[in-house]
Design a protein around this nucleic acid. Sequence first.
DNA 1: ATAAACTTTCAATATTATTTGAAAGTTTAA
DNA 2: TTAAACTTTCAAATAATATTGAAAGTTTAT
Lengths: 168, 168
Amino acid sequence: MELAEGKLKFIEAWGKLGSEWGINRTMAQVHALLLISPDALTTEDIMETLSISRGNANMTLRDLIGWGLIEKQHRAGERKEYFFAEKDTWTIARQVAQERKKRELDPVIKLLNELAEIKGDEKDPEYKTFKTSVNDINKLAKNVNKTLETMLKAEENWFWGSIFKIFK
Amino acid sequence: MELAEGKLKFIEAWGKLGSEWGINRTMAQVHALLLISPDALTTEDIMETLSISRGNANMTLRDLIGWGLIEKQHRAGERKEYFFAEKDTWTIARQVAQERKKRELDPVIKLLNELAEIKGDEKDPEYKTFKTSVNDINKLAKNVNKTLETMLKAEENWFWGSIFKIFK
DNA sequence: ATAAACTTTCAATATTATTTGAAAGTTTAA
DNA sequence: TTAAACTTTCAAATAATATTGAAAGTTTAT
């Protein structure tokens, strides 16, 4: 495979993966493009390379900044803004985990705690099944949460080193 | 909060969480409904409770069976099919992880391996950046893959026990 | 073999998510 | 202060995804 073809495949695959995991396809593609670009790119560059509109490019870039995955760069004597991606995969993984935890896991945990409070007749099978499911999922969610929190604090080597020690 | 309200909230939240993670909202809702139902339900029950059409219910139930999250139950002397959910959260988490690994991670790893093969001029910054990104992501993907594979084999207690040992 | 009971299919439709592009807004240099 | 260079916004258009429901298919009991 040639480099040029490889780049396209990479961008396409990153986009598909993103959309399968609830991240806007274009956002993932812009991120992929910046990941494999040695230099920071302008909005124009991105619009052109990915054939997307100015509005779309602008919003997507803002979102990516919001996720902490890319940054703006200003160049002396130039009005244009340049964008570049954080390239360390461990940092990327952490940023994504952090954002999704905040946006999705935290609210669910909050609701589960409320649902766990519901009182009812222990002899009612409807109540018992509900209660058991909620409690079990609550337990799982809390474990996931705890694991994520620790991961967010962890250093890459420390983390993978420890994981590998268990999963020998 | 009352039980009835709690049930609705639970179904709604599960549906939302599903849709944020690339799983069809209705599919997640049907799953939620079966999770908190003490008895197996018929297609009719599900259609009625969630106000969805017969076709939708049928397709969704088939998908859930495909994911290994629910099963059919046949009752002696009855033509109707009943459905019930696997209720152990660890098993649910494993099934979902397994399916998504197979459908999404495995193809990406295959592509990354191909991209890692691409030869080029080591002095070309375009090539170097591409290569580095692909290699780094490849490494991350392989680690995730390895972790998932071990998790899929693991017993619940063993797994969480070990995780907690590191994340003390 | 028939018909009732039930399940599956899929083209049409509805819903939701994404993208566009032109207008409005902002910043900077002269 | 002006106007060019650039960025942001958002209503409308488009595209992607999910749902419906009626018809076709299947199974079982008689």
